[in-house]
């Protein structure tokens, strides 16, 4: 290319146009962010993102459903029999071999112990805390029912055992364990 004065001027102009266009496009993109981000959960919603619960009043064999982030959470004080059954079940019998416990790595095995572990690794096998939403299509399963002394989803017939693991029916995964941790021996913070 012959570099005449005119050419140099032209390329300087091209650079100016491209640089200005880039800055303008970047500015527009940044200015759009507030319009998108305003739809995300706001501060008042996030403030309710964690729920405290004291399990001390729950007697053996008693369960409650509490609301956490608008979803049902099953908290159950399991009987000795239920714990025993859950522990004895060989992993090979499970449809879903991973724990589905958000406090553990995603590949943690679905042992009964892993189903009752909190974020600090504390295990209290008496208390099972899980999100009460069937992993099939989102119905709320019924407690103390089904073929495995656990939960039964009436919508499409999924059976969960006494550790909330899927055993029979169309649901693909065990019931999810929400993130939680013990603040005392019986008190937990979910979320």
């Amino acid at each position: 290319m012959t570099s005449t004065v005119e050419n140099a001027g032209a390329s300087r102009r091209d650079f100016l146009y491209i640089a200005t266009g880039t800055v303008g496009a970047a500015g527009t993109a940044l200015a759009l962010w507030p319009f998108i981000d305003q739809m995300n959960p706001d501060a008042s919603v996030l403030a309710l993102a964690s729920t405290e619960f004291d399990m001390a009043p729950l007697e053996e064999g008693q369960g409650v459903t509490i609301k956490w982030r608008g979803k049902p959470v099953f908290i159950r004080h399991r009987t000795k029999k239920e714990i025993e059954e859950a522990r004895k079940t060989p992993l090979a019998d499970l449809k879903d071999p991973v724990a589905r416990n958000l406090n553990l790595p995603p590949d943690a095995k679905a042992t009964d112990e892993n189903r009752v572990k909190d974020a600090n690794g504390k295990v209290n096998e008496k208390y099972l805390v899980q999100i009460g939403i069937c992993t099939h299509l989102g119905c709320v399963p019924l407690g103390e029912s089904g073929d495995y002394d656990g939960w039964f989803c009436p919508c499409h017939g999924s059976h969960y055992d006494s550790a909330g693991r899927i055993r029979k029916g169309p649901a693909p995964r065990n019931l999810d364990i929400p993130p939680y941790k013990y603040t005392t021996d019986t008190q937990i913070v979910i979320g």
Binding site: R13, Y17, G24
Partner: peptide, 16 residues
């Protein structure tokens, strides 16, 4: 700051 810089650039573009 952004608008100031961008205004200067736009002025240069307009002038050119």
């Amino acid at each position: 700051l952004f608008l100031g810089v961008f205004a200067l650039m736009m002025y240069a573009v307009k002038r050119a």
